[in-house]
Design a protein around this nucleic acid. Sequence first.
DNA 1: TCTGGGGTCCTAGGACCC
DNA 2: TCTGGGGTCCTAGGACCC
Length: 410
Amino acid sequence: MKTIFHIDMDAFFVSVEELLDPTLKGKPVIVGGKGTERGVVSAASYEARKYGIHSAMPLRTAQQLCPHAIFLDGHMHLYKEYSDKVEAVLRTFSPLVDMASIDEAYMDMTGCERLFGPPLQAAHRLHQAITDKTGLNSSIGISTSRLVSKIASDQAKRNGILWILPGTEANWLAPLEVKRIPGVGKVTEKQLATIGIKRIGDLAQLDEKFLMDRFGKLGLALSGKAHGKDAGGWFDTEIGSNDDPKSISHEHTFNEDTSDFTTLRATLVRLCEKVMKRLRDHGLHARTTQLKLRFEGFETITRAKSLADPTDIDRDIVDAILQLFESNYPKGRKVRLLGVHVGQFTTTTPQPNLLTGQDDHKWRSALKAADKLKDKFGQDTLHLGGALKGIYKDRVHEAAPKDPIRKPKQ
DNA sequence: TCTGGGGTCCTAGGACCC
DNA sequence: TCTGGGGTCCTAGGACCC
């Protein structure tokens, strides 16, 4: 029998902002951008939530609901620092830690009784340690599975601890709405509602085979989850086996839709550079690359291409992406968003290309030097020559200083 | 109320091979 | 000549999470 903790930071981004500026406390604060901009709410203070504001809501909507709210751009690097601090505290309690996102983690606390006492006592000590070391509030769920602990930490909000005793999981879950189950969103919730399933208890009554026939793999997982088990998907994976990413991507939404070819090309090059820098930081090579185009009106397409050999060199991906772009972009059509995505990773060093006789070695050492500069002075330090003209143009003609992709580093 | 950015996983069709 | 069935890779799209 395992003892799993799920730790979830309370209003994380907003709470970090309050540490920086204590006068924000008790006020309606929204992190995500200005209330007049394109974008959505990343985090809302509890005061702001009283107005019906929640994460993923368009900023413009939030501003209508609460015109006097304080809108902040946010400081991602700072949130990451605090996230690392939290992780460090967790690791003083158990080596088996999975950061599931920037503000939540799973811990395997099985067998830690001798060190920290029974689960509830250990949780209180952990909770206090997080507050002492970071000044931040959190909520903790405890149970025998990741799934139940996750739902429990949600019910424990805010700044609380909830322990679901072994053997009582299904009973405790039964009265909760199905949308409490991670993986059940709007669509699945609606589909379940059409067959009269509203609560987790209703789901638990259903035959596993029935759910499987109706919802495929998702149905099978749902059946297990309704009984409090880590059934299928990543819930089933061991805590502490956090490996390399499976994909890396960057995308950019323009503050105003544009059909300017130079701007579009330059943006793509810069997105490629950011993606490849991170790929090299992980020591990985990518085999597939994908272009994402979102047009005026939100219609979105993706176009992918698999390369003959995995690569970690900017030029290879830039070539592929620009080729995809030029053969799929209807000239003149207004673009809302561009995205670059790489996947199918390998860690092996690719063979030198004997057929074309090209020597990647020079490129690689040049990129290495460039990466070092970027680490020191920021991503905007260096760009492929071809992008420069476009970036320059972009800066001169568009007077939107907030576009994060061309926001100069301080 | 006009919809960010970074991810994961699943499905489904077509190509291609045996 | 009017057509099987499996396996795998590739691609496009979508649900979902924070």
